[in-house]
Every structure is written in C-alpha cells, then in structure tokens.
Nucleic acid binder design. Structure first.
Lengths: 239, 239
DNA sequence: CGATAGCTTGAGTCTTATCAACGTATGTGG
DNA sequence: CCACATACGTTGATAAGACTCAAGCTATCG
C-alpha cells in the first residue's frame, strides 16, 4: 500500500489529530480534502515565512521544526513537531505563514487545505470543536513553555525539555523512556535560548546523576521521578 | 445608559473583537448571548485555575492579568489583557480554565458563554472564522513573546514590553506615545522573568537615554524609532 | 498621620555566555 | 573502502549580565 492510500481511519495517530470524535461518514468527508504528500526528507522545507497559508499540515511520521529568522538572518526555532501535531496554526490570523517549517528527518505529512477545512468545520460541529481544541491546546502549551523559559534555570529547562519529549512520545504510544532525539544539540540550545556548551554540560551532568543516559542521539530516562523533581514541578491549582 | 445596555454595535472596540465582518443581523444574534457584567474592580478575580470554562471574556475597558501559581504558590503572570482582547482561550481544550484572571483596574467585561458561542460559530461562518483568527493571533503573539524572552537580554525585553503596550494602545485608537502603565513594576518583572530591581534600573536607563519618560505610572515615549532599535528589531522574512 | 505597598540604589555573588581549542561522528568522492 | 571534509559535540578558562540581599525612599490610602 503506497503512502497515498493511507486514510484517516487507518492512521495510527488519528486520535491525536482532527478526526477525534467524528462519525465514520464525517471522517470520510475530512479524508477527501486531505492531500497526502510524498515523504519529506531531512532539511526539506515545508513552507516559508510570508507564504500564503494554503494548508495546515498534520505530521504523520518523522519530526519537523518551525523557525523564524532574526534581523541578522539567524534561525530562531519556535517549535518541534511530532506525529499527530498540526503545523501552521499561527498563520491563520494573517492568512500567511508566520514561520518556516523544515523536516528534521524523513517525514510523512498530511496537507489540510485551509479553505476547505474551514468550510467543513462549518458543516461538522465535531470538527469545528476539535479544531478549536487543538488551537487552544497550542495556546496552553505555549504558555507552559513561556513559564518554563521565563522562570526556570538552565538545568530545569533541559530536564523539562526531555520530559516534554518523553510525554509526547508516550501519548503517541511510542517508547517514552528510551527514544531518539530528532534534533541536534544546537537546535535544542537555540530553542531553549541557551549556549550549546551549556546543553552539553547539563546533559552530561544529568548522566552523572544517573537520571538519564545518552548514547549518540538515543536518550534513556533512568529515573523519571527524580528527573521531574529536577525540572521543578509544574504550575498547579492552588487557592 | 447603564453599562448593561451597551451592545456590540455601539462598542468602540468591536472591530478588534468577535463581531468583525459580521452582518448587523448576525451581530444582534451574537449580542443576544453576551452577558455584560457589573464592573470588576482592582484585584477582583474573574475566574480561577481549574474552574469549568463556562465563558470566554472580552475586555471592554480596563486591564486584567492572567497567572498560574507555581509549586510554592507563587504567582506566575502569563499575560496582560487590554480592551478588545479575549481571555480564557487556553481553557477550551480542557474545558477548564488554565489560569487565574484578575483585574488590575476597574474593568468592564463581556462574558461569552462558550457553549452558545460554539453553536453560533456553527451557524455564522464569519464568526467561526473570526474566532479561529483570534486564536491564531494569540498563538502568534505567544510565539513572538517566546522569542523575546528567549533571545533578548533584559534591556531589550523592557524596551520591547513598552513598545508592545504602545502598539496595543495604538490599535485601540488610544494615545500610544503617552499612557498609564496598568500594572506594577513587580508585575512587569514577574511577566518578563526578571528581578524588580533590574526593571527599575533599566527604566531609569531608558530615561537617561531620553527614549522614554516616566512620571509615576505614566509613560511617555520620546523616541520610538530609537527605542525600537534598542529593543532589537523583530523577526522577519528572509530567504 | 502612620502604615504599607511600591520603587530605588548599591554591593557582592552566581549563573550562564563567550571564546578557544580539541575530539568525535558522518558521509562523500576518489 | 579509505581519507578527508564537515558538522556536531566536549571541555576549560574567563567575563559579563542579572540576581540577591540589604537598606532607604516615596507614594497612596485608610
């Protein structure tokens, strides 16, 4: 079966994606507007800053990053995207992409033409609702990230970054205690607003403390409980 | 005329809010679900973390902050909201508020019952579209803030914070070169992830450079061009 | 008028960036 | 299949930016 014949019903991450809670007939309708593209390869660009927003993109497999360029043309990474996540939501407001998107790995992508998706959202209440939920989640995660970067020190950021990846893999039914880092340390440093040297030192420190283990790009979490504590427990309900 | 009789048609910030591009009849429909509450006063709490999300809230006048509490119960400010802005979007995904919201000033608020709004969004394409745009804008602004905090030093953050406020006032047709800071320096420090002392010193520095002037809570921007340059020009289109 | 929250100022310290140099993978073409 | 080039990661020394602590000042409100 070629990748073009995969549909939402058979997609392993559909429960994280738009089809959540849709009836079969509705999923078929959604399915009919989705364009499944050829695989993207490492460093392939999905879209560029300023381009008209034709589609949102759902990641089916692989990993991508989004980034802008600063005044000096230096890349500023704004997010990493795993299977089941939707890329391009920040462009809806302006009708133009607000960032670049590039594959970090060989990745399968579903393109969701926005005009059609918007129309369909008018016809299928469950789809409208799910689209709003996905956007709300992104806002929520951005705020969590904001707190992470704003209030935590370098050690906590690195620990929290690893935990975050682990949880996202877990949500996808993938191994969450042992996984490949899809991005380089340079990318992590860029994303977390730190120097590469600091990332390297802190990853080494976490290894010495026997909280994690790293072999090349493979991370193994040895003590999730302590790692979480290390990351500084997250923000919660109080009075 | 009591504040309860104000409607979207007569609201001065409706063009920033949900009614954008709706027909009169549609606006009336929207208007009918909106509850206009008594004024909130300084330190009144609009909603709390974890409460069921019954309504989104549109600010009509005044200023509010949203915040979470960290593990030690310390306030972590996640946003400031001016007239025309919508509060509570991050709670849609979970159906529960993901933060606390508190008035910084006497504020007039429109409550938008979410269930009704969602239904109405199904009936009025322009409303659905505008809701998505507003959420998209919030995502975009969160990403901009992320870059600000992640890549810029303390001076640039403070300068960018003032410019951001100024632009938001300008959008609302309010004086943008001279305005009241609705929040304390403690709040600004918290929001920007800095010590109050640093905020104080840097505001003083910007005054010495004659880029801004501060009298009590009143900020006057003396040289916007240089202030912008100082803040580090923002992220843009490149190859 | 006094109490309190908010702001200012200075001195010392610590975290993290920067710079420089070196080590280790990876992959390409000969 | 090896050798080289290049990207990626490590390590150490130094420096700067921002925090912390301490103390004093100034609005504001009851």
């Amino acid at each position: 079966m070629s990748s073009n014949q995969i549909n939402c019903q058979s997609c392993s991450i559909s429960r994280l994606c738009l089809p959540v809670m849709l009836a079969d007939s509705e999923i078929e309708h959604l399915d009919s507007i989705i364009k499944r593209r050829k695989p993207y390869h490492k460093d392939d660009v999905l879209f560029r800053y300023g381009e008209p927003l034709e589609s949102l993109y759902a990641v089916r497999s692989g990993c991508l990053k989004t980034y802008t360029l600063d005044a000096d043309g230096v890349e500023q990474i704004t997010g990493f995207y795993l299977p089941g996540e939707i890329i391009g939501l920040d462009g809806i407001g302006e009708g133009k992409h607000q960032s670049f998107a590039k594959a970090l790995d060989t990745s399968l992508i579903c393109a969701l033409p926005y005009n059609k998706l918007d129309l369909l959202a008018g016809q299928i209440p469950g789809l409208r609702s799910q689209l709003l939920k996905i956007m709300s989640h992104e806002i929520q995660e951005d705020k969590t990230l904001f707190l992470l970067l704003n209030k935590k020190n370098a050690e906590q950021r690195v620990a929290a970054f690893i935990i975050n990846l682990s949880k996202r893999y877990a949500n996808r039914g993938l191994a969450s205690h042992c996984f490949q880092l899809p991005m380089t340390q340079v990318d992590i440093a860029n994303y977390l607003g730190m120097a590469v040297e600091t990332i390297s030192r802190l990853l080494k420190k976490l290894q010495k403390l026997e909280l994690i283990q790293i072999k090349q790009k493979e991370v193994t979490i040895l003590d999730m409980a302590q790692l979480s504590q290390y990351a500084g427990t997250s923000c919660h309900i109080h009075s």
